[in-house]
Amino acid sequence: MDVTHTPVLTERVIQLLDPALRRPGAVVVDATVGLGGHSHALLEAFPQVRLIGLDRDTTALEHSRRRLTGLGDRVDLEHAVYDQLPDVLERLGVPAVDGVLFDLGVSSMQLDLDERGFAYSRDAPLDMRMDQERGPTAADVLNNYDVDALTRVLREYGEERFARRIARAVVTQRQAAPFTTSARLVDLVRDSIPAAARRTGGNPAKRTFQALRIEVNSELEVLERAVPAAFDALAVAGRLVVLSYHSLEDRLVKRALTPRSVPSVPPDMPVIPPDARPTLRWLTRGAEPASDTEIEQNARAGSVRLRAAERTAAEPGRAHNQTGGVR
């Protein structure tokens, strides 16, 4: 297994976090530490920074621990989902942080390990749990959801036009035998989609696998809680960077942060009171894609969209200082 994979948009991430992480005593959170690629780069770029890394995948955390050996006195790795960030910071006694990074989606390791069941290109058990210690598997979803529930998952999380066709086929076929491995599901999806629709867009099972993964891991629900919580954890002048890999994630990030970038007063009000001013400044114009050069060097960058923001003020009633603390 390649445990030294190339993380996406590393130079841009460092550039965006740089002003916040050069402050004395700076603390950065890698909310999706994975194999530690971004974390390692941040620790090397900012020799004084303390890093808190979160991941729900215990296998990934173990690889990160090995990768970050030698930097251990500046690293805290926590087995946690990223919406648990406030609890982690409270437990560690960290009142506020200077930077937060999210690198969303499935990791290279999860795709490469057949037994995890994330990849539709190889026959493997239908697991798809990012935390293999808890929760239902993709097989559980396929074998227990009714047609309406399966249709909702495939339509909302996979943006699958033929969601109901696929759901009906799943419910019919599982009566003969439950679904256990990916190859059977891939064949079912291919057979359920009209031939004309199979000729473009790559493997037709891609959307179904994405939808199941999101459902199994409650990814969008968790992200909807995590993004505001991460922004709330920032000190004034702290920065948040999010790498998304499909439109559902990116839209959710934009929707969660945009209200903080505009005054909380009617648009015709001539004077904006201090407690109604925006608390967020966008650092990117919309969602930034990777460059052609980056995509050539790292295929995973092909679908990435980056958004970044800076905290410009504390929320009313909460006074942040400028160095990662709260007073």
Rank of each mutant, 00 (worst) to 15 (best):
G34T: 07
A96N: 08
D131V: 14
R56S: 11
V189A: 01
A276L: 08
D73V: 15
E219M: 07
A308H: 01
D127T: 10
V88T: 05
R22Q: 14
P263A: 11
F102N: 02
G37F: 09
Q175C: 02
S192N: 01
F162H: 10
V271P: 13
A31G: 12
A26R: 11
T258H: 14
P194T: 04
A196P: 07
N144S: 15
V94C: 09
V265S: 13
N203T: 02
L77I: 13
T32L: 03
R122C: 08
V49S: 06
S39H: 08
I214F: 07
Q210E: 01
S121K: 14
T32A: 06
R327H: 09
L104D: 05
R91A: 09
V171P: 11
N203H: 08
D87A: 15
A80K: 08
D103N: 00
K206E: 10
T69V: 08
H320E: 05
V153P: 11
T312H: 06
R164G: 06
E133K: 12
M128T: 08
R311V: 00
P263G: 10
E249I: 00
R207Y: 01
M128L: 12
T58K: 12
L43N: 07
T312N: 04
G202T: 02
R307Q: 04
A309T: 06
E133W: 10
A96V: 12
E160W: 05
A205M: 06
S64L: 11
D232E: 13
L89Y: 12
R65I: 11
P136A: 14
P228R: 03
A205N: 05
R65M: 13
N217V: 10
L54P: 04
D148T: 12
T200D: 10
G202Y: 04
A230M: 03
G135R: 09
D146H: 14
L111W: 11
